[in-house]
Amino acid sequence: MNPNRGDVTTTDDTTALDAAARSVERLRLSESRLARRRQTDCGPSENARAAMRFVLERTDAGEDVTPTLIAEYLGVSTASVTGMLDRLHSGSMIAFAPNPADRRSKLVVPFDRGADPDDIDPLTAQIRKMVRQLSDSEAKKVSQFLAQVADAVDQECT
């Protein structure tokens, strides 16, 4: 058993519950380390990746995307989004188009319409592959549990 890898051997329900709580904490720490690595070592930041997924999904749904919508979606200032979009534009990941509904605004469009959101964040593709190994009932329980964890995280310090 390697406790750093999340391998768990349990003998009773309390131990299993403790192991689940430790696993969630380990996930949160791993996500935090990943976010720091992505800021310095590994391409676009987590916010930039989330913005790209948002642009691709909304554009594919036939919706217009503006920098303001991206800022609202990410919960950050429009100033931070402007810098991030400039970097994504420099990296040929997005383009800008005039907004026909508002001449003062611009639309954000994917530079490569054939881009797959999983290519922007390969970790998402890997997680989807792991999820396919779960039964429907297991997936439902995991989904419900992680939704509760996400809600708890979102409520922290509000």
Rank of each mutant, 00 (worst) to 15 (best):
S77R: 05
I120L: 03
E63M: 02
V153P: 13
R36C: 07
V81W: 02
N4D: 08
R58C: 04
A19R: 05
R36V: 13
E63Y: 06
I94T: 10
D18H: 15
L17K: 12
I70E: 00
D41K: 15
L107Q: 04
P44Y: 03
T66A: 04
N99P: 06
F111C: 12
S143E: 15
K106S: 03
S30Y: 12
R28I: 07
C157L: 10
Q148W: 04
A50N: 12
R37M: 12
R5V: 05
S32F: 06
D7T: 10
V131I: 14
A35D: 13
D151M: 01
Q133V: 04
L107M: 00
T40Y: 09
D112F: 15
N4Q: 11
T158M: 08
F54N: 03
V24L: 00
R128Y: 04
T82M: 12
R132P: 02
L107A: 00
T124H: 11
A115M: 07
V108E: 04
P122F: 05
V81K: 00
K129S: 14
L34Y: 07
V24K: 04
S90R: 14
R5G: 06
L69A: 04
T82K: 14
A48L: 01
E63G: 01
G83M: 08
A147Y: 11
N4E: 10
Q144M: 11
L107K: 03
G6M: 09
E72A: 02
A50C: 12
L88Q: 05
N2W: 07
A150S: 15
G6W: 10
I70V: 15
